[in-house]
Amino acid sequence: MNLTLNIWRQANATAAGAMHRYELAGVSEDMSFLEMLDVLNEQLNANGEEPVAFDSDCREGICGMCGLMINGQAHGPEVTTTCQLHMRSFKDGDEITVEPWRADPFPVVKDLVVDRSAFDRMIQNGGFISANTGSAPDAHAAPVEKKLADLAFDVATCIGCGACVAACPNGSASLFLGAKITHLGSLPQGQPERDTRVVSMVGQHDAEGFGGCTNIGECAAACPKEIPLDVISRLNKDLRTAMAKGY
């Protein structure tokens, strides 16, 4: 198939960017979206134009490194990551607009590459269970109710791609935050730090400049791992509990 691509090009963090138009012929429907961009880049390189920079690593939907706004949807029209989106979701003659995640806490580094280190800092500020190596009791010392263990797993599947922020009209990272709060907060091991964790992670979230949540649900709809909105309610509940305890 033949496609017209409108792609955001921006030389670096401080340069002004603009949309550029490219024609690409001979795209196979078996290609992933990123392989289609690989082909474009080969073509650009051959023509003496610098290839489009975009992030990707595992290309099997688990590392969370890739993430593009495709025709106004985070990771494109399917519920999956950009790397697992295949060209069979498009048709011959389509015009596709490709933009980077847009959020001020995710500044553009170049073209379609953004800096998501704000997520790392949110994890640094409490997104863990303090358990020094070697200090752990036997793994069977504390049984965990299966329902809770399953819940913890379901929300721990978050890949930190940032699609929730990209899709949210408020630029909020509440889904990412809620997923971590729920993961750690539903396990017995996570209880001792539960109150301080939620307060410090929320504090970091706000300090990074993410917006507030208005519960409209665009994040959950864009999440390639289908993390539900429940986690934001749990986040709010944990904060409320912490507030009642004076944290």
């Binding site: 863990f128 269970i129 358990a131 190596t133 070697g134 200090s135 752990a136 009791p137 036997d138 793994a139 069977h140 049984p143 965990v144 109710e145 299966k146 263990a149 399953d150 913890a152 797993f153 721990a156 993961h183 750690l184 396990l187 091991q189 996570g190």
Partner: peptide, 18 residues
Amino acid sequence: DQCVAQGVPFAREYGGLL
């Protein structure tokens, strides 16, 4: 042991054990 202490959500049986 270490991973469980960190909160790694391994699969569990109904009795709550791994």
